[in-house]
């Protein structure tokens, strides 16, 4: 099992985590007109890169959602970033 680092809890077994999405997708403003192509891209298009990837993960143990940068071939974890600045 891999070790992922939750920004709050620290390093934990990968089974405590769940993949959420590729990082970088912004939800279109659906109160305005959104084209079929834009909406389809938001729903379905993935970059699916080989190598460095930036992903949104959830640490389901504490529910923290964060960004993890990984290498999709070597499985190395490159960086873990909280969505928000530390408050304390």
């Amino acid at each position: 099992m891999q070790i992922f680092t939750c920004p709050f809890c620290g390093p934990r077994d990968e089974r405590e985590f769940h993949f959420v999405a590729e990082q970088g997708k912004v939800r279109p403003d659906t109160t305005q007109s959104v084209s079929d192509a834009d909406w389809a891209a938001y729903l379905h298009t993935q970059r699916n890169e080989k190598g460095r990837v930036r992903e949104v993960w959830m640490h389901t143990t504490c529910d923290e959602v964060f960004v993890m940068e990984r290498h999709s071939v070597s499985m190395e974890v490159l960086a873990t970033t909280a969505l928000r600045k530390e408050s304390t």
């Binding site: 769940h18 959420v20 939800r27 949104v56 959830m58 389901t60 529910d63 923290e64 959602v65 969505l83 928000r84």
Partner: peptide, 20 residues
């Protein structure tokens, strides 16, 4: 549902103003 609420709470809203 809990995970669904938490994911949207933190990524797209102000989590300081919503608690699950």
């Amino acid at each position: 549902v809990r995970a669904h609420l938490e994911a949207w709470r933190q990524d797209g809203n102000d989590p300081d103003r919503i608690f699950v």
